[in-house]
Amino acid sequence: MADRQRADARRNYERILAVAEQEVAAHGGGASLEQIARVAGVGSATVRRHFPTRHALLEAVSAQRIEALCDRARELDGVGDSRDALLTWLDDVIAYCVAARGLATALAHEGDPVHGNSCASAIEEAAKPLLHRAMQAGAVTTGVTVAELVTMIVGIVTVTEHHQDPAASAERLWALAVAGISPVR
């Protein structure tokens, strides 16, 4: 009987996650947990048992994208100009966040986008070498942190989400932010 319950729980989890991916794609980080439960054919308590918080659900929905961004950071580490490598990766983060509704919300966490957030923690660990190398080369102002860069990206993507052209708006604001993090030459 326990094996059947575990198999049912696993199927419920997979069904909830599949529906959540569709709902988050359609409605962003504010997707209704009750709607997810209805479409998945489970009770809202079942959703909350698997995902005790909205943030836990968003982290699960975003896990593959986060891993791809981490892989990209590792791929760019040590390649070419350190500033270009960092900015290429940060551009990728923005593009992913604009394209994958809910990802920016998954990276944000109650005022602290890194600590206590597995998505942001993974991003921070992957990006530290890129940022460190850019700082060592004098290409980025000393003292800038991955958490600060993630916070800027989350803010930019969140603020531009409902613009007529969210990608263009986010890219423009990011260009302005980059001018602010680059040292005066």
Rank of each mutant, 00 (worst) to 15 (best):
A9G: 10
R10N: 15
Y13K: 15
R15G: 07
A18T: 06
E21F: 03
E21I: 08
Q22V: 07
Q22G: 06
Q22I: 00
E23N: 05
A25I: 02
H27C: 05
G29A: 05
G29F: 07
A31K: 11
S32N: 10
Q35K: 13
A40W: 15
G41K: 02
G41I: 01
S44D: 05
R49E: 07
F51V: 11
P52W: 01
H55D: 10
L58P: 03
E59T: 08
Q64L: 04
R65H: 14
E67G: 04
C70A: 14
R72K: 09
A73I: 03
E75G: 09
L76R: 05
G78C: 04
V79D: 08
G80R: 04
S82G: 00
S82P: 01
D84M: 11
L90G: 06
Y96I: 03
T105Q: 14
V114P: 02
C119K: 07
A120Y: 00
I123Y: 13
E124M: 12
E124H: 12
L131N: 03
H132Y: 07
A134Q: 02
Q136K: 14
Q136L: 12
T141V: 12
T145C: 10
T145L: 07
A147E: 10
E148K: 11
I153W: 02
T158P: 01
V159P: 04
H162K: 15
H163Y: 09
H163D: 12
D165M: 12
S169M: 09
S169W: 13
L173K: 08
W174A: 11
A179W: 10
I181Q: 08
P183E: 14
